[in-house]
Design a protein around this nucleic acid. Structure first.
Length: 480
RNA sequence: GGGGCUGUGGGGUAGCCUGGUUAGCCUUUCAGGUUUGGGACCUGACGACCCCGGUUCAAAUCCGGGCAGCCCCA
C-alpha cells in the first residue's frame, strides 16, 4: 500500500481520480491495450455488490436473467439499418474465425437477443417478455479513453423488453427511469437528470432515448443508464411477432435499458470520495465494518478472542465485517489504508475498550470517532442506514446548486465556467432545432443534453439562439 | 484535424541546458529481526535511462525519425 493521495479532489479532479483508482486498488491501469483496464479484487467486489442490487431491482419488476453469446454474426448485426450505421465504426471484428460469417464482439446485444426472441415469442400470452443479462461489451472508442468512465470494454446490464402495445412500451421506459432512481440514486447516492435526448443524439435504431446525466465534480456530465423506446424497428428487422387475442399477427413493441455498472462505479467514486480517498456507501461496501485489534505480545490472545466475538455478532446481524489481523502493519497504517479504500466503519479494540466495555467507532464520511457499547454492536446496521442517508443528502445538495436558468449565450458560458449546467428555453430538439444546437456547440463548446424525460416542462419565451417561439426547455452542459 | 509538452526500476522523481565516476532520492516489493493506541525501526536484497539511427574517443544528456502518453484549440 502506498502512502495517501498527493492531490486534493477539488484542486485537480482528474489526477485525484487516477490516484484513487490506483491506491484504493480498484483498477490497475498498466494493462498495455488502450481502453482496457484490469479490475482488481476490491473493485470487483464493489461491482459485485452493485450488480446484486441492480439485478434484484430488475427481477422485482418482472425481468428474468439470461446470458447470450459475446459474438454476433455479421448477418445479424446488419439487420437493422440505422443500428448498423450507428455502431459500425465502434465494432471490434473477429477476422480469423472459421465459418461462413465474420463475427462482431457485441457492442450491445439487441442483434444477438432478438433473433432468439423471434423464436420464443408466439402469442399475446408470452407478453410482456422481459429479459436482462449481465455482460461485458466492446466498443472501439476513438475519443480519449478513461478508466471506468469511457473504456473500450465495460461491464453492464442490458434489459430487453417486448410488449403488445406502444403504450406499454412507453410505460416501461418510465419504469426504467424509476429503476435508475431507486437503485442509482436512492441506493448508490448518485443524483441524475433523466434527459430525453435530442433526435440527433438518440440511440442508433431507437425512436427516442432517455439518458441519465450525472454531474461529475469537474462540472462535466457523464451519461449513466439509458433507456430506449425501440418501437418496432428491431421487431420488424428480426421478425419478432405475436398473435393477438383476435388471432392476428403483430410485431412487438420493444424497449431496452442499459446501466453500465463499471461506469456507475466511476460516479460512486467521484461523487462521494474525499481527500482521504474513497467513501463507499454502506450498502455496497464489500466490507462494512473493519475491525482493527490493538494488542501487544502480552494481551494478544485476549484481544483477538474479543475481536472475533464482535465480528461474529456483526455477521449474525447481517453486517459484512472483517478483522485486520496483519501483524506486520501497525494500527495507524491500517487506519489510513481502510480509509483510502472507503470502508464506512472501523472498530478499534484494545485493552482500554475491553475495560470500559465500549469499542471505538470511526465513521468514514465524517471522520469522527465515537464510542459504542460492546452490548449494542448490532446498532451499526442502523448507523449504516443513517450513513447512506448522509451521503445521499450531500450528493443531492451538490446537485441542487448546479442547475442555472440562463437567458443569453453569455450566461450559459458563465454557468459552464462555474462547473454548472444551463437550463434554457430552446426552439426544438427535433430536426428543425439542429442548426441552433450547432451554434451552441460551436460558440460555447457545449451540448444540448435534452429535455426532462419524466416530466414535460413548458417554456414561456423564445429560443435562446434563433429567437423563434421555444417549444422546449433544454439542459446544456459539457460532457465526457 | 491543428498546436504544445513529456517519456529514467512497480509508482513518483533528480540528473539533460553545459556529453565523461558505480545513474541519486522517496516510495513500493521481497527476506530476517525488533515493534504494535493515527503512516515504526534496523539489516540485507530485487529492480530503470521508450525504440531505431546519427554525431562523438565517449550519449539518459546533442541531432533526426518512429512509437506511446498528457494538455490545449477546432
Amino acid at each position: 500500500m502506498t502512502k495517501g493521495l498527493s492531490v486534493k479532489k477539488d484542486e485537480n479532479f482528474s489526477k485525484w481520480y487516477s490516484e484513487v483508482l490506483e491506491k484504493a486498488e480498484i483498477t490497475d491501469l498498466r494493462y498495455n491495450v488502450k481502453g482496457f483496464v484490469v479490475i482488481r479484487p476490491w473493485g470487483a467486489m464493489i461491482l459485485e455488490e452493485m450488480y446484486k442490487l441492480y439485478e434484484q431491482a430488475l427481477q422485482k419488476r418482472g425481468h428474468k436473467p439470461s446470458f447470450f453469446p459475446t459474438v454476433i454474426p455479421k448477418k445479424n448485426f446488419e439487420k437493422e439499418a440505422e443500428h448498423v450505421k450507428g455502431f459500425t465504426p465502434e465494432v471490434f471484428w473477429l477476422k480469423k474465425v472459421k465459418g461462413e460469417d465474420e463475427l462482431a464482439l457485441r457492442p450491445t446485444s439487441e442483434t444477438a437477443m432478438y433473433q432468439m426472441y423471434s423464436l420464443w415469442i408466439r402469442s399475446w400470452r408470452d407478453l410482456p417478455f422481459k429479459l436482462y443479462q449481465r455482460a461485458n461489451v466492446f466498443r472501439y472508442e476513438t475519443k480519449a479513453t478513461r478508466p471506468l468512465i469511457r473504456a473500450r470494454e465495460f461491464y453492464w446490464i442490458e434489459a430487453h423488453d417486448c410488449f403488445a402495445t406502444k403504450e406499454e412500451a412507453e410505460e416501461q421506459v418510465q419504469e426504467d427511469i424509476r429503476t435508475t432512481e431507486e437503485v442509482m440514486h436512492q441506493k448508490f447516492g448518485i443524483p441524475f437528470l433523466p434527459m430525453k435526448r435530442p433526435i440527433w443524439d438518440k440511440f442508433a435504431g431507437a425512436e427516442y432515448t432517455i439518458g441519465s446525466d450525472v454531474i461529475m465534480p469537474d462540472g462535466k456530465l457523464l451519461q449513466q443508464p439509458s433507456t430506449h423506446l425501440l418501437g418496432q424497428h428491431f421487431s420488424k428487422a428480426f421478425n419478432v411477432k405475436f398473435k393477438n387475442k383476435e388471432g392476428k399477427e403483430e410485431y412487438v413493441w420493444q424497449t431496452c435499458y442499459g446501466p453500465a455498472i463499471s461506469r456507475i462505479l466511476a460516479s460512486v467514486i467521484s461523487q462521494h470520495g474525499d481527500n482521504f480517498g474513497l467513501i463507499l456507501p454502506f450498502i455496497i461496501s464489500p466490507i462494512q465494518v473493519i475491525i482493527v485489534p490493538i494488542f501487544t505480545k502480552q494481551n494478544k490472545e485476549k484481544i483477538i478472542k474479543e475481536v472475533k466475538k464482535i465480528k461474529d455478532e456483526l455477521i449474525d446481524k447481517g453486517i459484512k465485517a472483517e478483522i485486520d489481523l496483519r501483524e506486520e502493519k501497525r494500527p495507524g497504517e491500517k487506519y489510513y489504508e481502510w480509509e483510502l479504500k472507503g470502508v464506512p466503519f472501523r472498530i478499534e479494540l484494545g485493552e482500554k475498550e475491553i475495560e470500559n466495555k465500549e469499542a471505538t467507532l470511526f465513521i468514514r464520511d465524517t471522520r469522527k470517532k465515537e464510542k459504542i457499547s460492546l452490548k449494542e454492536i448490532g446498532k451499526i446496521k442502523k448507523l449504516g442506514e443513517e450513513y447512506d442517508k448522509r451521503l445521499l443528502k450531500k450528493a443531492d445538495d451538490f446537485m441542487k446548486d448546479r442547475i442555472i436558468e440562463c437567458k443569453t449565450l453569455k450566461e450559459i458560458e458563465e454557468a459552464l465556467k462555474e462547473k454548472k449546467i444551463a437550463k434554457v428555453e430552446f426552439c426544438s430538439t427535433e430536426k428543425e432545432g439542429i442548426s441552433c444546437a450547432e451554434v451552441i456547440e460551436k460558440e460555447i463548446g457545449a451540448e444540448i443534453r435534452g429535455t426532462l424525460g419524466n416530466k414535460k416542462e413548458i417554456p414561456k419565451g423564445n429560443c435562446i439562439v434563433c429567437g423563434k417561439k421555444a417549444k422546449e426547455v433544454v439542459y446544456i452542459g459539457r460532457s465526457y
